[in-house]
């Protein structure tokens, strides 16, 4: 089973149906990027049959473009709308990936989304069974979708 394919399919689908944005997936990164500069990260936890975390990382400029498309308004700073939109996007991506991982919707449950932003921050976690980071290109710029998953036995 390829998590990268699930990430790519879910992201392309959600951007095209919810944000009316065409995005294309790039080959998964062989080494994850953990430091982010002038960026916004939306994240949501996954619990149950699979435990994990889904995150979407975008440079501030790209996050503003995404939010503008999402909400249909002009966005000129990283305000609460942008943080809410990135958190909600993480929530939608995780919801879509969760449906691809298991037919039973009760097997995986999502936490509430959260967002982090700033000039310079890093995200770390202990090595899990599976982790992948997929870059996407859009007209607004490049962003990353990251999934860490651990299947419960």
């Amino acid at each position: 089973m390829s998590w990268e394919t699930h990430i790519a399919d879910a992201t392309v689908e959600i951007f095209s149906t919810m944000l009316m944005m065409e995005v294309s997936s790039q080959p998964p990164l062989t080494e994850r990027i953990k430091s982010h500069q002038d960026s916004v990260t939306g994240m949501v936890g996954m619990a149950g049959l699979y435990k994990g975390m889904l995150a979407i990382h975008a440079p501030s400029q790209v996050a503003m473009t995404i939010t503008g498309n999402f909400l249909g308004l002009e966005v000129d700073s990283v305000n609460d709308d942008v943080k809410d939109a990135m958190g909600e996007l993480a929530n939608m991506l995780a919801g879509s990936i969760k449906a691809k991982l298991s037919d039973n919707s009760k097997d995986i449950q999502l936490s509430i989304p959260s967002a982090v932003c700033g000039d310079s921050y890093s995200l770390d976690y202990q090595p899990q069974q599976g982790s992948s980071m997929v870059p996407f290109e859009s007209a607004g710029g490049r962003f990353l979708v990251e999934l860490q998953l651990e299947q419960q036995t």
Binding site: G45, Y121, D124
Partner: peptide, 23 residues
């Protein structure tokens, strides 16, 4: 009854955290 996800550590010189307004 709750189920847990996995932990993430966020660190840096300057960052802000944000959660749902209605939580």
């Amino acid at each position: 009854i709750i189920e847990l996800s996995i932990p993430t550590a966020i660190g840096g010189q300057s960052y802000t955290v944000h959660s749902l307004a209605n939580a």
